[in-house]
């Protein structure tokens, strides 16, 4: 099937099998490998992308269902300069191995668009569909809050 998905603002078309998962479409058809795969059961969130601005798990959606929609991946966060979330994850040691990081930042982005000063618990709740095995989450929470403050400050 032919699908056209707008990825990070650019329309991308490909002829794919209907069973191709969105995450595989992004990673193998488009060669954008910042979106990761960490489980088989929709549990880990390493594959998180924004579908029309809303975070979803791209391992649990067929690429054909994204036809005509807008998808944002981690590669689309930087806009000339690093996004405040990218800066804050770096400054607050919000990542270690980096595998969960794209998903965490994208969920953070969706959260901060609604609320730039979330509490610790609000951040934890928002990222509770995303697993991290390295950080213990403490600095991820801090990073998202710091990015909110930076966005607020601008």
């Amino acid at each position: 099937m032919k699908v056209t998905v707008t990825i990070n603002g650019t329309a991308q078309s490909a002829d794919i099998e209907s069973r191709k998962l969105l995450v595989d479409f992004i990673r193998t058809e488009l060669g954008m490998t910042g979106t990761h795969i960490g489980c088989d059961t929709t549990s880990c969130g390493a594959c998180t992308v924004l579908l029309d601005g809303t975070p979803i798990k791209s391992c649990t959606m067929f690429a054909v269902s994204a036809d005509g929609h807008e998808v944002q991946t981690v590669e689309g966060l930087k806009n000339g300069e690093l996004h405040p979330l990218q800066v804050s994850f770096k400054e607050n040691h919000g990542l270690q191995c980096g595998f969960c990081t794209p998903g965490m930042m994208l969920v953070g982005k969706a959260l901060l668009e609604k609320n730039t000063s979330p509490t610790d618990d609000e951040v934890r709740w928002a990222i509770s569909g995303n697993l991290c095995r390295c950080t213990g989450y403490t600095n991820i929470v801090k990073s998202i809050q710091a990015a909110g403050a930076a966005i607020e400050g601008n």
Binding site: R27, T28, G31, M32, T33, G34, T35, H36, I37, T73, V74, E75, L77, K78, L82, L85, Q86, F89, K90, E91, H93, L95, G98, F99, T101, P102, M105
Partner: peptide
């Protein structure tokens, strides 16, 4: 010191085994 490896990770430019083609 802020981590030198983070620039690539926060931009989705890490290079993990499954990324290799």
């Amino acid at each position: 010191v802020l981590r030198k490896e983070d620039d690539r990770f926060v931009q989705g430019a890490g290079n993990y085994v499954d990324d290799i083609v």
